[in-house]
Design a protein around this nucleic acid. Structure first.
Lengths: 197, 197
DNA sequence: CTATATTCGGAGCGGTAGTTCCTGTTCCAG
DNA sequence: CTGGAACAGGAACTACCGCTCCGAATATAG
């Protein structure tokens, strides 16, 4: 499970135009999903890729599979970032910086926010499996920050994810204003801190 | 514009079964929209009301009009609550209590959250006009709280509304857990407060 | 009770979106 | 060069949804 599915199934090498079209589709889907979200019609992705819908459906069995292939990369990247952030000497700062990163990414890319939200509703869906790595990373960051006493003791990983998703909705609501986005993130992080003192 | 539209337009008294059906539709729509949100099919509302879709469309020109009629009541009620809360002797507490009320209402009722979100995207739509009263109430509460120094000086009414909407998404994400809902609201309110001290 | 304007109901229309199917085309081994 | 298998493309199929239309039912005036 690492190179993409063959069409035939035996061991024959794939044709050159097939792999070319596959990459065109992936590129177009990345652009369109990021700009418009998961609700964009499949035909639009195919058109942008310069390909018919039949071609698209030969490479990806369903729209959801294509979407999962696109957001999977982002999610893995974010999960890795969370993993490395756990090595930070200041756990509190590490958590808050990662929240800022996640909020900025998800507010700017519609596909990422859609994926996070879908994962919360349909636990069975393809993207939900991709999110667990990210959730684990947040969990690790939060544990260290809690041990340090940098955040309220009663918050769990689900709370953090919920707050981030919510903040992204708030940010998107006002047209991606950069200053406001930073303000909302700052407010949420301040709220996560332990009380005054 | 206060009693609902007549069908004919002259001055004839409406038929008894017509007003009965109108109220059935309103009741069914209130239940279904609250449970499933604005995206619920019109046929389902009609079925629940024990009425055909044709009947529904005689009383309400469009689905959006029906939806606006349903959420309009809630929005006015909330706007009134915000108005009266402005008379509170403690502006900070008044604002935070109202945020908690709004979040609880919107997290439990899908229609209210959908309306708030739709108003942020389509400024032209019917519900957007209904939200301005609520926004004005929040504005007033925030102004007093800011003057008292109970909240950060750099937050605006739009920030508050965005945060509340976001918080509701976070709350809904985890299945309406009561304790978690209160925790998220508390975190956001704490973040809105002026820094430590 | 009768007449008639009003209302009811749901089949059907137009549009959208995901997916499939089939014909014509293209690449590659031999 | 050539045969044939893999591939491309988009029309068509299915499902869904908001909305309309018109024959059937019915409430109310006289």
């Amino acid at each position: 499970m690492h190179g993409g599915q063959r069409t035939g199934g035996t061991g024959r090498a794939p044709r050159a135009d097939a792999v070319r079209n596959r990459e065109r589709i992936l590129l177009a889907a990345a652009q369109v999903f990021a700009a418009q979200g998961a609700s964009v019609p499949v035909d639009l992705v195919a058109e942008r890729a310069g390909v018919g819908v039949g071609t698209l459906y030969r490479h990806f069995p369903t729209k959801e599979a294509l979407f999962a292939a696109i957001v999977g990369g982002h999610l893995r990247w974010l999960a890795d970032a969370a993993q490395t952030a756990q090595g930070d000497s200041d756990p509190g700062r590490a958590l808050f910086e990662f929240i800022g990163l996640l909020a900025t990414e998800a507010a700017g890319r519609h596909d990422l926010l859609d994926a996070l939200e879908q994962a919360g509703v349909d636990v069975e869906c393809a993207v939900a499996a991709q999110v667990v790595g990210l959730a684990a990373g947040i969990s690790g960051l939060l544990e260290r920050a809690t041990a340090q006493g940098a955040v309220r003791a009663d918050v769990g990983p689900e709370d953090v994810l919920g707050l981030v998703i919510g903040t992204c909705h708030g940010i998107r609501r006002m047209g991606g204003d950069e200053a406001r986005a930073r303000r909302l993130v700052a407010i949420v992080c301040e709220g996560l801190r332990t009380g005054p003192g």
